[in-house]
Write a protein that binds this DNA or RNA. Structure first.
Length: 340
DNA sequence: TTTATTTGACCCCC
DNA sequence: GGGGGTCAAATAAA
């Protein structure tokens, strides 16, 4: 499969990232070939798996990361076991006695509007699964902020995460901040006709997916009724991790949700809308009222709110099996301290 | 029983 | 010291 990359002149060279992305795709193809080969030894299969994992870990670091310390920063990390972790918004690469802390990742913001009209429009298949890992009351904000990370973080080392907070100005709008590109294979969900893998099948069910935006924005909404209750409201904006290639810089689109007409039995009804286990979820009665998704209300709101974003265009970063445009803005402002 | 969510506590940065 | 982000035990749901 051929990949196309388009890149503008930026502060730093994205080519290593693109090359690595391409290499990852090729290795995954090779891995498929090796796994299917009856003559392949267990050792070669194991090596292929390790190589693929290594590529994914590397991409997790390189996606949106600028090494201020230059190439030597990485060359200082040598010897011993290498581990990759994330703490306080920083990616930390540790090996032996050394560690490299990286703060910046691709970061962008979406605004999701929810309005009071019903309009369930059939199933949709969405791309990414998120797992909620925290919620905080934010100083000066009327509504709490929910924290999500990629549900495949453990299994595939994907470091993508997002924060969701209801807007103070307009309660019908949710500010969704994404950080980090997906390095997992969830994008495969977007491929029509492609059977989900075993794990994904566990994560999804037909009731989860209610929308499909023509723009390519996929929104998952679960258990709208229970949004009235302190738990179990759920939705995700998977495509936000792969913003519409047609979107221009600082372009604003809006994802429109609509709530069902008031239904007295809503609170208790509907086992059919219970949230699946591992889903992109947002939970908080105060945050998430009984909204129902609708796919004819509008586009998605993609807002890049940083003044110093560099524009990068790449393709198929997250999936070797799919070619799609990917426009995003990378905040290169953050510092990249090196510590021991 | 397994898996996901909730929420108080803890940690780190400013 | 305060605030934001994350962890992890408790709890809920499937």
């Amino acid at each position: 499969m051929e990949r196309k990359y388009s890149i503008k002149d930026d502060d730093w060279d994205q080519r290593p990232l693109m090359e690595l992305t391409q290499a990852k795709g090729l290795v995954e193809q090779l891995q498929t070939h090796v796994m299917d080969s009856p003559s392949a030894t267990n050792t070669s299969k194991e090596l292929m798996t390790k190589i693929t994992s290594s590529y994914k870990a590397s991409l997790s670091i390189l996606n949106g990361v600028k090494f201020e310390g230059g190439e030597n920063s990485l060359s200082m990390l040598k010897g011993g076991e290498t581990s990759l972790s994330k703490l306080n918004g920083r990616i930390k690469l540790e090996t032996g006695e050394n560690s490299l802390s990286i703060k910046c990742q691709p970061r962008w913001k979406e605004q999701v509007r929810v309005c009071e009209r019903s309009g369930l429009q059939g199933p949709l298949d969405d791309g990414y699964s998120w797992r909620k890992y925290g919620q905080k009351d934010i100083f000066g904000a009327a509504h709490p902020r929910a924290y999500f990370r990629c549900a495949h973080r453990v299994a595939q080392g994907c470091l993508s995460n997002k924060q969701v907070q209801r807007s103070d100005e307009d309660p019908s709008i949710f500010d969704v901040t994404y950080q980090g590109l997906h390095t997992c294979n969830q994008v495969s969900h977007l491929l029509p006709g492609q059977p989900p893998n075993k794990e994904d099948q566990k994560l999804k069910n037909p009731q989860e997916t209610l929308l499909n935006f023509k723009t390519g924005c996929h929104v998952k909404v679960e258990d709208f009724n229970s949004l009235l209750e302190p738990k179990s409201a759920s939705f995700s904006l998977p495509s936000a991790s792969t913003p519409n290639p047609n979107s221009s810089k600082r372009e604003k689109k809006t994802v429109i949700f609509s709530s069902p007409e008031p239904q007295p039995h809503n609170r208790s009804m509907d086992s059919s809308f219970h949230p699946p286990s591992a889903s992109p979820t947002i939970s908080d009665a105060s945050l998430f009222p009984p909204y129902r998704a609708n796919n004819f209300g509008g586009g998605k709101n993609l807002q890049f709110d940083h003044n110093d974003f560099a524009s990068v265009t790449a393709s198929g970063i997250s999936s070797p099996s799919q070619d799609f445009g990917l426009d995003f803005y990378v905040d290169f402002n953050s510092d990249i301290p090196f510590s021991r």
